Simulated scan of single mutants.
Amino acid sequence: MAEYRKRYAFNCEYYDVAADLIRPYTLFYYLSDGTIEMFDERTKRCFLKRTTFPLDLDALDIDRHVKIFGRQLKIVSYGDAFTKTAFDSVERTYAMIKPGTFEHVPSIISRIEESGLVIHRLKSARMSEEIAGRLYKEHDGKSFYPNLMKMITSEPMCVMELRGEGCVKRWRDLMGPTNPETAKRENPRSLRALYAKNITYNAVHGSDSSSSAERELGIVFGDDGKCPLRSTASATPFCTCVVILPHAVKEKKVGSILQHLDKSLPSNAFISAVQMFTLTPEQTKEFYAVYEGATPEYSAMVRHLSSDSCVAVCISSESEEIVGKMREWAGPKDSVIAKAIRKESARALFGYDSVQNAVHVSDLVEEAPVECGYFFKLLQ
């Protein structure tokens, strides 16, 4: 076998905060002995000589991040055809939490994470008639088609791309039989047995094959990667922003944090939008602009939030008190302190320190709508 077929190659970028520059590297992983090597594309020189490093291959993917000896690298593309063939073979499927089931999004996401499947893309949305028509084109003309279209465009929903070995079958097994009555008899722990209202409002949908998954993902998330569906962020008098940070997303704690959040909301507030984002360093600096020069952790915060996918949550309410209540829910910014004095707070339960502290929440009433707007308007 040729030497280049004995190793994987990834084109990566490193954001140098001090110099405010993005530095390109090629990362090599040698299959024979698990060693890595890095090449600096800017200087055209070896940056890291071949050395042993415990690289997690399951965590490698386009737009994901990997930390090499403290240096956070973003994978932007595969370095050769051999690597692309090896990593593009990971199965993916389209998953939808249907209208009428939006209140159960935290519990369903938690079940997905517990199953071992990886949520690669996530967005709460309203289905347009045009997109719905493309999705269900094969049913056009059938007797149930009008009711199907009415249901799918009626209320907020959540669309996802799931990844993992055998994920098409695994997601369908987790959903359970199409008829919720059958699901209750045959698989009482399935999502449809637990959350479906009837055979039309049967809680969830999943692709029936890999080919269907590719078609449905292309329609819903766009062939260019830009989801055409409208966000569900609600225009209530007041809102606040919660951001589940990359370390918690990677550790599959999104569902648990959303469940903890949902139980803590006052009666006049609700989760109106949830979406996964991967921010560039420049976008992260824009979002964290108020902290520059105001907190010593600023640079570390920028590196962490831009290091991998995060999940933004819009909380809508009739009262401006929601901003303060969410600060109380989050707890002290340093998770070490939170564990000592606010043991039931989100940062105590899910965080580690003052940077990897599980969640960001809006600090001030006037900042909250700006932060929600940044994710749910500007980045759409």
Rank of each mutant, 00 (worst) to 15 (best):
L21Q: 15
L57T: 05
Y78H: 13
G79D: 10
I68E: 06
I62P: 02
F39T: 02
Y14C: 07
H65W: 05
E41N: 14
T26I: 09
K67C: 14
A59Y: 03
H65V: 01
K74C: 12
R42K: 12
R64H: 11
D56L: 00
T26E: 11
A59R: 08
D40Y: 08
S32E: 15
D33I: 06
F47D: 13
K67G: 01
I22L: 11
P24Q: 05
C46Q: 14
D63S: 13
S77H: 03
I22C: 10
A59V: 04
I36H: 03
D40V: 08
L60Y: 02
F28K: 01
G34R: 06
F28Y: 15
R42N: 08
L21D: 11
A18H: 11
L57V: 04
Y29I: 09
I36M: 00
A19H: 11
Y30F: 15
A59W: 00
Y78P: 06
D63F: 04
L55N: 01
H65T: 12
V17L: 10
V66M: 02
D63E: 13
S77E: 11
Y15Q: 03
T51F: 01
R45A: 15
S32M: 11
H65S: 14
A59Q: 12
F28M: 04
F28D: 03
R42S: 09
R23H: 14
Y29W: 12
D63C: 08
C46L: 14
I62S: 04
R71N: 10
H65C: 09
L48R: 12
R45M: 12
D16P: 07
P54T: 05
D40S: 03
D20M: 04
I22M: 11
G34N: 12
M38E: 05
I36P: 03
T35F: 03
P24K: 06
G79E: 09
E41M: 13
G70I: 07
L48K: 10
D16S: 13
T35M: 09
M38A: 10
M38C: 08
R23Q: 09
R23N: 02
D40K: 05
D20Q: 12
Y14W: 15
V76Q: 09
Q72G: 04
Q72P: 01
P24I: 05
L73K: 03
Y15P: 01
D58P: 03
R45G: 12
E41A: 12
A19R: 15
F69A: 13
F39D: 06
A18C: 09
A19M: 12
T35S: 14
R45W: 00
A18T: 14
Y29R: 04
A59M: 07
I22N: 07
I68A: 02
I62F: 00
Y78G: 07
D56W: 02
R42H: 06
T43L: 11
F53Q: 03
L55E: 04
T26G: 03
R50P: 06
I68P: 04
F28N: 06
G79R: 06
S77M: 01
L21H: 11
D20R: 08
V66L: 00
L57C: 00
D58M: 10
E41C: 13
M38S: 05
D20H: 07
T43F: 08
T51M: 10
G34Q: 01
V66F: 00
I36T: 00
L31F: 03
L21Y: 04
F39H: 07
G34F: 03
P54C: 05
I62G: 01
H65N: 11
L73N: 04
R50Q: 15
L48D: 05
G70D: 02
R23K: 14
A18D: 14
Y15H: 12
